[in-house]
Design a protein around this nucleic acid. Sequence first.
DNA 1: ATGCCATATTGTAATTTATACATTTAGTTA
DNA 2: TAACTAAATGTATAAATTACAATATGGCAT
Lengths: 221, 221
Amino acid sequence: MALTDYPQPSVTVDILIFTIRNNQLNVLLIKRKISPFKGAWAIPGGFVRIDESLEDAAIRELKEETGVEADYLEQLYTFGDVKRDPRGRVITVTYFALINSEKLKLKSSTDASEAKWFPIDKIPKLAFDHEKILKYALQRLRWKFEYTLVGFSLLPKKFTLSQLQKIYEIVFNKKFDKRNFRKKILSLGILKEEGIDKNVSHRPPMLYSLKKNVKNIVEIL
Amino acid sequence: MALTDYPQPSVTVDILIFTIRNNQLNVLLIKRKISPFKGAWAIPGGFVRIDESLEDAAIRELKEETGVEADYLEQLYTFGDVKRDPRGRVITVTYFALINSEKLKLKSSTDASEAKWFPIDKIPKLAFDHEKILKYALQRLRWKFEYTLVGFSLLPKKFTLSQLQKIYEIVFNKKFDKRNFRKKILSLGILKEEGIDKNVSHRPPMLYSLKKNVKNIVEIL
DNA sequence: ATGCCATATTGTAATTTATACATTTAGTTA
DNA sequence: TAACTAAATGTATAAATTACAATATGGCAT
């Protein structure tokens, strides 16, 4: 039953899937197999089904492309310019996802499809308005790292302060002072010591985990 | 031409229109004249036309309800739960708008329709999932006041520091120290002196305006 | 002219937070 | 046991935040 007699736009969900690979921030892109923009790289996505929520659609797309679930997922922005898709009126609700590099190894090689990880400083020309969308997503990503704890979702449950610092350095593409970084993070009072990791051939580091119920609010850096 | 054979959701734009009236933060609501939720108050909105962008739709709705243009407008979030509208699948892209209290006087009495301003601490039961949406909007509003200069859009071009402080006190519902507030604002280096306002029956205040090209970036408070 | 009223304007000390910067420690490996 | 690797640590300075109260400038009433 249509709620209005007027023609309605189509609705898609596109998802920006970020991870860290080879000490670089990467985003997953797919190669378009059909026109328009056939052969061009694009942000993965698809139509929203009538019986699934937007978030469910994002989760489904994510799973289709990567085989795993996101360690962090949030809605990004809805792009709805009239001519953003040459085929007709298409509104796209975008999400961004973070995937922990550990899981990643399970999958990224498995799928022989047209999906590929791109370091964010080596992005090819993209289809539709996807360059604008990616740019927006990177802004939001950095903002989130600065003011929230999303960064921790890229780490295993137990991690060292050096690992954490590395992630921040990759995302912001700059070095931080080790002493100040540690001081800052520890002063937040959000970490729990988890014992020492002896499996290294140098001074063994302390492992930490995020305290329970610490997921929001806190400001970092 | 449909891009997919599957049934598609409908798309609406809802807009949260905020202003300051009687020293209180107010939001504009409309009384529903049809089922479902007939007689209940709701956030104003309507269907997106096939030939207008989402933002254009928001601007149109805003103008229909208030007769004026927003002093600030931004997309808020897109709500798309499957059962949020009992009539069928409706995705709503929400916007929030700020309207300067000066303009307001021109209009708010003019329109004899079912629209009404509500102080945000006296909101009635709302239709659909609109309570959730309003709550989200208030969070975002406060966040924006804290970290950006949107607050200035509620003031006339020339304003006093007391007026500015008042707006912040209303939005955050708390008092700020006068000396520290002024220190903070002035230290941002974003204000230009505009001479003294003699039309008061007490010590005349300095008028300020926002310097040109200062619209983003800066962090307040 | 004087005193009253209302709001605007101003400063300083104490505390907290941010920044800059180099050495020592604990383990492995040759 | 010497060399290597990454982990852990402290201190002085600067900058930002907080707490707090008296004086200034005009209009208005007498």
